[in-house]
């Protein structure tokens, strides 16, 4: 089989790409998509570690399943927030929402 570190590399790459997306994209929906990428990177790690280090226990899979749940909830609430913000300010640009400054 492929050694474990290769999966970890893919996960690291996916996470870094997601990180870039969160930091650099202006559109709030794009930021949300990048967050999904990061969550997936975490899932790859969870499953890969489970497969290689503890295939007999099932905690890794269970954890990944819970990450799915959280991701689904996050996507639903996040998109609802974005739509609400769009309604109020006619914009989905994250930078435009800067009420917290100074």
């Amino acid at each position: 089989m492929v050694p474990l570190w290769m999966y970890l590399m893919v996960a690291a790459g996916l996470f870094s790409i997601g990180l870039y997306g969160v930091l650099a994209r202006r559109n709030a929906i794009a930021i949300l998509m990048s967050i999904e990428l990061m969550l997936n990177a975490v899932n790859i790690n969870l499953v890969a570690f489970w497969r290689y280090q503890a295939p007999l226990a099932l905690n890794g899979q269970a954890f990944a399943a819970f990450v799915f749940v959280v991701a689904a909830a996050e996507a639903a609430v996040g998109l609802a927030l974005i739509i609400t913000i769009y309604r109020r300010r006619q914009s989905v640009i994250a930078e435009d929402v800067d009420l917290l400054k100074w």
Partner: peptide
């Protein structure tokens, strides 16, 4: 302190 979430996130990172 710009109020921009991504900038804050950058500091955190």
């Amino acid at each position: 302190q710009s109020g921009r979430i991504q900038q804050y996130l950058l500091y955190v990172t």
